[in-house]
Design a protein around this nucleic acid. Structure first.
Length: 962
RNA sequence: GCGGCUGUGGCGGAACUGGCAGACGCGCAAGGUUCAGGUCCUUGUGAUCGCAAGAUCGUGCAGGUUCAAUUCCUGUCAGCCGCACCA
């Protein structure tokens, strides 16, 4: 009987479920087993069902999990569902089904599909982010964030009570800009504004002022921010969810508008998020992506004083409608700029403010006001996309105002231009056209002076010294590009002749001494916009008073469940769907005594959390999924964390992985988890592309089959007409292209084991590779061959004979080598090579009339992590009554890995000319003599002088002749 | 533009710290088993020349280091991914 995968796979999947074969033991029951936490990125259960990309990562972790169980590890290998999110809600809107129902159906489909692959999850630990018993703790974690602040002295999150205490004791004040002021009485600092001119201390503040200050310190805080509002989706989106001015989901246009939103203070962790990447076993490219996203740059903030306007020109306040808003001419205004190159300060020839910069109105004299206003209007009308699209052509206008360069008192014209962004640095720059490409382009366009202040080392200077001398400040560009590299400072007075790094240091200390600047670090990373105007998400455990101040609800009221509503449609306006649940909205506390008291006129927060919330901590819930008292038991957490292996797609490089690390660090700071980083080792599986497609390169390209073409030089051409070139391409699988492969079909036609083997054999896990159905047959043949060898096949007229005989040489050695090789390869996740080794061993078995029992059993055990169903069946037929899931992995004998005789290549001048076979312990001279006497060596050395005789132990012999 | 990764037969891909390039699979070819078929078996399969033994060339391209380079160095080209006016 040939191998019947359908029946066998069903049989063992049932067996595993019934016997809970893959249960992970709690630390108390583990009996000292070493632990291994092997994690997959849990899927969003979409309506489309499983994609062939899912099983790739899942099979990889499954192989590792199964292997480690056989190696005696207590393996935690769980699966769950990241089930909140837009698609379920959009589907609900369209079909008027409750998203919970859609979600439940989708989860059932996903579970069925995942179980049919024979993945060894501990199903008792399944989690679902939309289950109130789960999101109760998502809400609880949010409250941890709400009730903590980032202490800049200790550089960690602390409970907000700690800050209150310190403030009561007047120990220090944390200003809204994050700067710390020890003893605010002495410094006379206003804790609200951080302004040192106002002499007020904490105890003198009104209760409202105190609350405002405290609320401004929380890790979860409300802010009126310019958000990415997406009318198409009826929600705001995070920066991460907006691509080229369009929503990542759906591709709807996104516009900026100010709204009250919840923010999470991830920026406080920017430094730690960068520093702690270092020891992680993550792909370097991914670490780099996170670093880029955080975008840390070190430089200086420099203050430029604005030149007071001429007496007859008055500067006008922004709101001209307000009375008495005309500024006096003698008022001091300074523009603070951020630069990473303070060493080029002497090269500044003009300044630029972002169009949205608040100072623009105050510095612009009435004479220039109209021009500025119309320019701003044009910019405001442009989408981000348009602004990006026009990067090459700079635009801007002169404000009519000037500022003074603090290092040389030069008067610099101030421009407004959209190439300076309000969102980064201070929204203002000093322009150094000689050493910045954007400034250079702008200076060229507006014919502004360009002055070189850095000379490249070993590189030709962009501007000759003579050129600078001749033209001085009035130098005009005579060359085609800016020099942005490091070099030696010139034309820079006190820092002349210093290399860039030293020049930076020196100029910063001078600025700091004179009080005109300071060393600063800036980040691209923004605080995380955490609220969404959706129905299908976690409700905030927050109530608001009439003034919009937020209070947390007591923990005993968690979970705060979603109200049942009929209409999930986004309102189109910023009011979230939850605002329609009138009864739910009104808040009456269940707790009698509270501090602060919660009563009267309170309404629930109607925003919901973004999809990322649930996935920020799910790996912790798997550890203790049914705990009703805590989000995770501390003992269990300590035992299992950190995750030893995390596998998933690279699409989560900056979103999920950054957010989860941030939450984890907060929980770590507050003492809720034991490790500063959640994921010790991380692998990105490569994308599986659709099958290779071929089309002709003609005026009207047409698709051709792969057997109609042939290689022709560097490219392909039609067999029938070699003059017609053919292009080969593979594309991402997509419905519209019609190249999606459904795992259900593959499992039905070939079986789960073959499917698993095929996906693992396609190539390196991390590589992007095209699907090729034709190749699957190789794995089917392999498994059928194994079956014939160990069981037999009546159709092939073969009955397997398995006897307890000794394994003949050299097969015995090969088996021992295979055991080691597969071990090494699995540890390094080189599954394609491990499978090749098993195929080779099986090919050798095919040649035997009788299979030695030891070989049969070891082979079956080695096959098990890769093709678990057939392996279990073979194991049973070999006479075992229990699953091999925890059967010890075969051991190899190191003595058998060493060859007794070795075959060495003999080279003459580096070219292979012969081979010799010598005992492994032969001495060098014997080997060289033997090698020299071979026919191949003689032929090539005849009549020539031997210059050198080389013997690389156990590798080869090489004679250098001439 | 900046950053990262990758270039090996007709295809997917092997090759540990430099040491026999092309493991293993697909495809292809020849032969066998079979009434027949192939999800069967065996053998062969980088290119060129040669009946053959064999020789020469060959890891994107051009150099370099070395007895020896897919591997190390310099330059260059192509592809993929990420970021993108980030001061």
């Amino acid at each position: 009987m040939p191998y019947n995968f359908t029946a066998t796979e069903k049989k063992w999947q049932q067996y595993w479920l019934e016997n809970k074969s893959f249960r992970a033991f709690d630390p108390a029951d583990a009996g000292g087993m070493p632990k291994a936490y092997v994690l997959d990125m849990f899927p969003y259960p979409s309506g489309a069902g499983l994609h062939v990309g899912h099983p790739e990562g899942y099979t990889a972790t499954d192989i590792v999990s199964r292997y480690l169980r056989m190696k005696g590890y207590n393996v935690l290998h769980p699966m769950g569902w990241d089930a909140f999110g837009l698609p379920a809600e959009q589907y609900a809107v369209k079909t008027n089904t409750h998203p919970a129902e859609t979600t439940r159906k989708n989860i059932d489909t996903f579970r069925r599909q995942i179980q049919m692959l024979g993945l060894s999850y501990d199903w008792d630990r399944e989690v679902d982010t939309t289950d109130p018993t789960y999101y109760k703790w998502t809400q609880w974690i949010f409250l941890q964030l709400f009730n903590s602040y980032f202490d800049p002295m200790q550089e960690k999150a602390l409970p907000i009570e700690h800050l209150l205490n310190e403030l009561q004791n007047e120990n220090y004040v944390v200003a809204p800009d994050g700067s710390v002021h020890i003893n605010p009485v002495q410094e006379g600092m206003d804790p609200i504004t951080g302004d040192l001119r106002v002499e007020r201390i904490w105890t003198e503040l009104t209760p409202e002022e105190r609350r405002e200050f405290i609320d401004g310190q929380r890790l979860a805080y409300q802010a009126e921010v310019a958000v990415n509002w997406c009318p198409g989706l009826g929600t705001v989106l995070s920066n991460e969810e907006v691509i080229d001015g369009k929503s990542e989901v759906g591709g709807f246009p996104v516009e900026r508008r100010p709204m009250r939103q919840w923010m999470l203070r991830i920026t406080a962790y920017a430094d730690r998020l960068i520093a702690d990447l270092e020891p992680l076993q993550w792909p370097e490219s991914l670490k780099e992506m996170q670093r880029n996203w955080i975008g840390r740059s070190v430089g200086a903030e420099v203050d430029f004083e604005v030149v007071p306007p001429d007496e007859d020109v008055k500067r006008v306040e922004a709101n001209r409608g307000d009375a008495g808003d005309t500024r006096e001419a003698d008022e001091d205004l300074t523009i603070s700029v951020f630069t990473t190159r303070p060493d080029t300060l002497y090269g500044a020839t003009y300044m630029v403010l972002a169009p949205e910069h608040p100072l623009v109105d105050r510095i612009t004299p009435t004479s220039h006001r109209e021009t500025i206003e119309s320019y701003r209007k044009v910019i405001a009308g442009k989408s981000d996309r348009d602004r990006v699209a026009e990067t090459k052509e700079k635009s801007g206008v002169f404000t009519g105002a000037y500022a003074i360069n603090p290092v040389n008192d030069e008067k610099l014209p101030i421009y407004v231009a959209d190439y300076v962004l309000m969102g980064y640095g201070t929204g203002a720059i000093m322009a150094v056209p000689a050493h910045d490409e954007r400034d250079f382009a702008f200076a060229k366009k507006f014919n502004l002076p360009i002055r070189q202040v850095v000379r490249g080392t070993g590189i030709q200077p962009v501007f000759s010294d003579q050129e600078n001398k001749d033209h001085g400040q009035n130098a005009r560009a005579t060359v085609e590009q800016a020099f942005t590299g490091e070099g030696i400072a010139i034309n820079s007075d006190v820092i002349n002749d210093l290399p860039t790094a030293e020049a930076k240091d020196k100029i910063i200390s001078i600025l700091e001494r004179e009080g005109t600047g300071k060393r600063t670090v800036k980040y691209k990373l923004r605080d995380w916009l955490f609220s969404r105007q959706r129905y299908w998400g976690e409700p905030f455990p927050i109530v608001l008073d009439e003034a919009g101040n937020a209070y947390d609800i007591p923990q005993s009221e968690l979970p705060l469940t979603l109200p049942q509503i009929e209409d999930f449609k986004p309102t189109g306006a910023p009011e979230p769907p939850l605002s329609k649940a009138k009864d739910w909205l009104k808040y009456e506390s269940t707790v009698a005594q509270q501090s602060p008291p919660l009563s009267g006129g309170l309404t629930r927060e109607t925003n919901t959390m973004p999809q990322w919330a649930g996935s920020c901590w799910y790996y912790l819930r798997y550890i203790d999924p049914h705990n009703a008292e805590r989000f995770v038991d501390p003992e269990k957490e300590k035992y299992w964390m950190p995750v030893d292996l995390y596998v998933g797609g690279v699409e989560h490089a900056v979103l999920h992985l950054l957010y989860a690390r941030f939450w984890h660090k907060v929980l770590f700071d507050l003492g809720h988890v034991s490790s500063p980083e959640p994921f010790a080792r991380l692998i990105n599986q490569g994308l599986i592309l659709g099958e290779m497609e071929y089309h002709t390169i003609e005026d009207e390209p047409r698709k051709v089959a792969d057997d109609e073409i042939e290689k022709c030089g560097e490219s392909y051409a039609l067999k029938s007409d070699p003059s017609v070139k053919v292009k080969a391409e593979s594309f991402k699988m997509s419905k519209s292209r019609g190249n999606v492969v459904n795992p259900d079909d593959i499992v039905r036609d070939y079986g789960a084991d073959t499917f698993r083997l095929y996906e693992m054999y396609m190539g390196p896990l991390e590589a992007q590779k095209p699907w090729n159905t034709r190749d699957i047959i190789g794995m089917t043949r392999f498994l059928n061959g194994v079956w014939r060898n160990l069981v037999g096949d009546e159709e092939a007229n073969k009955v397997a004979k398995i006897d307890p005989i000794a394994i003949p040489e050299p097969l015995d050695r090969q088996m021992h080598r295979a055991i080691r090789k597969v071990e090494d390869d699995v540890a390094a996740l080189r599954f394609n090579v491990a499978i090749a080794e098993l195929i080779k061993l099986n090919n050798e078995m095919t040649k035997l009339a009788t299979i030695p029992r030891e070989l049969a059993e070891n082979f079956t055990l080695m096959l098990a992590p890769f093709a678990p169903h057939i392996a279990e069946e073979l194991w049973e037929r070999l006479g075992h009554t229990k699953s091999l899931a925890r059967r010890p992995w075969p051991t190899y004998d190191p003595a058998k890995l060493v060859e007794t005789t070795m075959e060495l290549p003999v080279q003459v001048n580096g070219k292979l000319r012969d081979k010799i076979s010598v005992p492994a312990d032969a001495d060098e001279e014997t080997i060289l003599t033997t090698a020299a006497s071979t026919a191949g060596a003689k032929q090539w050395m005849e009549g020539k002088t031997i210059r050198k005789r080389l013997y690389v132990p156990k590798k080869l012999v090489n004679f250098v002749v001439g």
